[in-house]
Design a protein around this nucleic acid. Structure first.
Lengths: 120, 120
DNA sequence: TTAACCCTACAAGTATTATTGAATTAATAC
DNA sequence: GTATTAATTCAATAATACTTGTAGGGTTAA
């Protein structure tokens, strides 16, 4: 994870619409949702939704697969954990317990995150 | 943590300058750094640095205390963990192992995060 | 108290992002 | 084969954030 990718990730989450989309898909879990259902659930114009879905996907926070004429989107948790790992690299010379936990989690999941990246 | 606060947090991290500042302070640990030293370390104009420090602080990602004529800034980890908790609320009906870990961490630290908030 | 230093507040110019509508591609249904 | 549905791309407008310079408030040193 480099700085550019991290910025793309945080930028993706720094929008009310995209945050709603992402959390909706997190709640939805592995089944994900097709674009049209997301548009209905959040009352978004198809054009606008597509713009934000693309943003989230390019940031590595969503994956998308085609199903006939539908596009199914899913939250991509490793993308989020890579962001956490990037923030906490070389964390805390002072090592409070809290910090140690975060580092352990992000390190452990960081490796696994590299194995399945969505489209660049 | 509400949507507005979450957006402020992610927006704060969605800038190269602020990401550099935040990670520098994470590395620095509990000792933190005074504004002037941050400016030197990252080669930033004082005015511009002040702008970004304020942004990060208001987002709950930094704390600041006055020390004589210096301002000492520290990374505020609970702020970051609240963001993680907000993202993963009601996460994954399907419950993969990865997801459960994230939820457990964010829930556990979420409560503690509420106890010491920086300035609004 | 005068001077020097640290940092922040304000204002202006520049640049980036969000939203909308029209047109396009792609897949299914008739 | 034509029509219908799903989703995206493109172009234009409106809104927002980043950077820089000047000025000001507060603290320490002479």
């Amino acid at each position: 994870m480099n700085q550019e990718a991290a910025i793309a990730g945080f930028e993706a989450l720094a929008s009310a619409v995209r945050l709603d989309i992402y959390r909706l898909l997190i709640r939805q879990g592995p089944s994900g949702m097709v674009a049209g259902d997301i548009a209905t659930a959040l009352d978004l114009a198809p054009t606008n939704l597509s713009f934000h879905l693309k943003n989230l996907t390019r940031a590595g926070l969503l994956t998308v697969v085609q199903e006939g004429r539908y596009q199914r989107y899913r939250a991509h948790l490793p993308g989020m954990l890579e962001l956490l790992a990037y923030l906490t690299e070389e964390c805390c010379g002072g090592e409070p317990e809290l910090c140690a936990e975060v580092v352990a989690l992000s390190k452990r999941l960081g490796a696994q995150a590299d194995s399945d990246r969505p489209l660049p």
